[in-house]
């Protein structure tokens, strides 16, 4: 409880046990946060961004074929402005190329995006590759 009198607040002297309880739980939560972050900082090895992409769905849309994909950053460092090039491969050579840029792919996290091909990629291999990034 707090007692307010003309903009003067005085905390009560005999607080309810719930106040102490909440305080204790809060302290545990905050220490937990600090411990988690410190733990990651101490234990986890810092690795540069490295990407893996996977096609999730191909749908026919107005003016082409949309390929939705997921890109995951396996490194612990966040990458910004990640350029992903998507190619439809035909006999070992790219038949069509599309590019998309992700603002951020955080470390150990995923991001989703899509490209739109004019050709139908059905039956052919789609190659997805991150070709560059910057440090945020």
């Amino acid at each position: 409880m707090t007692t307010t009198s003309k903009n003067r607040h005085t905390e009560t002297q005999q607080p309810h046990w719930i106040e102490w309880m909440t305080g204790a739980v809060s302290a545990v939560l905050i220490l937990g946060m600090v411990a988690w972050i410190a733990g990651e900082a101490l234990v986890q090895e810092v690795t540069a961004p490295s990407f893996r992409s996977q096609v999730r769905a191909i749908t026919v849309v107005e003016g082409g074929h949309r390929v939705e994909f997921e890109i995951s950053n396996q490194g612990t460092t966040t990458a910004a402005a990640v350029v992903v090039r998507a190619e439809i491969m035909e006999a070992g050579r790219p038949a069509e190329t599309a590019e998309v840029t992700f603002d951020y792919v955080p470390g150990n996290s995923k991001a989703n995006g899509g490209v739109i091909f004019a050709q139908d990629p059905a039956g052919r291999e789609i190659r997805l590759r991150a070709i560059g990034y910057t440090d945020p």
């Binding site: 707090t2 002297q13 809060s26």
Partner: peptide
């Protein structure tokens, strides 16, 4: 500040820290 909270003299500062500031941060 205007509206500052006060503790009674007998209450140590860490009491308010545990009861209000830490829960407030959470």
């Amino acid at each position: 500040f205007r509206g500052t909270h006060e503790l009674t003299k007998e209450t140590p500062g860490w009491h308010a820290f545990i009861r209000f500031t830490l829960p407030g941060y959470v």
